[in-house]
Amino acid sequence: MTKVSPARSKPRIKMTADDHERLSRLAASAMDRAPEVASFLSDELDRVQIVRGGTAEGDFARMGSRVDFRDNSTGRMQSVTLVYPGDADIAQGKVSILTPIGAALIGLSKGQSIDWATRTGEIRRLTVLEVREAALA
């Protein structure tokens, strides 16, 4: 288990203006109850390329997206939907943006990789395999 800071540079990420605004408020309000994840999310928000418009074209992970990714440390593949904390349900694959994995995935496109720290401090690397819009319910 590696417990050092990621040395690799972070990939460029994209985000809609709406997601950026909402997630900025969420990160600020979560600083007292989940400071490490809120700080990581804030750092991610500071480096995004804002894509103008309500519905942006492109295959980058945004709120409501279904993201297939591989944990490069274990080779395990997963598929999750990025959601706000109140909608999280791990049994249904709905992962809160205020979890380390949710904050790591936001804004990534197919083929991009990022290092992230688990709740135990272990540094892992994931690679996005596919991004899909969630089916409307």
Rank of each mutant, 00 (worst) to 15 (best):
M1H: 09
T2F: 09
K3C: 06
S5K: 14
S5M: 13
P6V: 09
A7M: 10
S9I: 07
S9D: 09
P11E: 01
P11I: 03
I13C: 02
I13D: 00
K14S: 11
K14V: 03
K14A: 03
M15L: 13
M15H: 01
M15Q: 01
T16E: 08
D18A: 12
H20Y: 05
L23S: 04
S24V: 08
L26W: 02
A28I: 12
S29E: 15
S29W: 06
A30D: 05
A30S: 14
M31A: 15
A34N: 11
A34I: 13
P35N: 04
P35I: 09
P35A: 10
P35E: 03
E36D: 15
S39V: 09
F40N: 04
S42T: 13
S42C: 04
D43T: 01
L45G: 00
D46Q: 14
R47M: 02
Q49D: 08
V51Y: 01
V51F: 01
V51R: 08
R52F: 07
G53N: 04
G54S: 12
G54M: 06
T55V: 13
A56G: 10
G58D: 02
A61G: 04
R62C: 12
G64C: 08
G64R: 01
R70S: 14
R70Q: 10
V80N: 02
V80L: 10
T81R: 14
L82Y: 04
V83R: 04
Y84V: 13
Y84E: 15
P85F: 06
D87F: 03
D87L: 09
A88L: 04
A88G: 04
D89I: 08
I90C: 06
A91M: 11
K94N: 15
V95Y: 11
V95S: 05
S96D: 12
I97A: 05
L98V: 07
T99I: 01
T99S: 15
I101R: 13
I101S: 13
G102C: 07
G102T: 02
A103V: 06
A104F: 02
A104N: 09
L105P: 03
L105W: 03
I106E: 00
L108I: 01
Q112G: 03
Q112F: 06
I114L: 03
T120L: 13
G121Y: 06
I123D: 03
R124G: 14
T127Y: 02
V128Q: 09
V128W: 07
L129E: 08
L129W: 03
E130C: 14
V131A: 12
V131L: 09
R132V: 10
E133F: 03
E133M: 10
A135N: 11
A135R: 14
A135K: 14
A135P: 12
L136A: 12
A137Q: 11
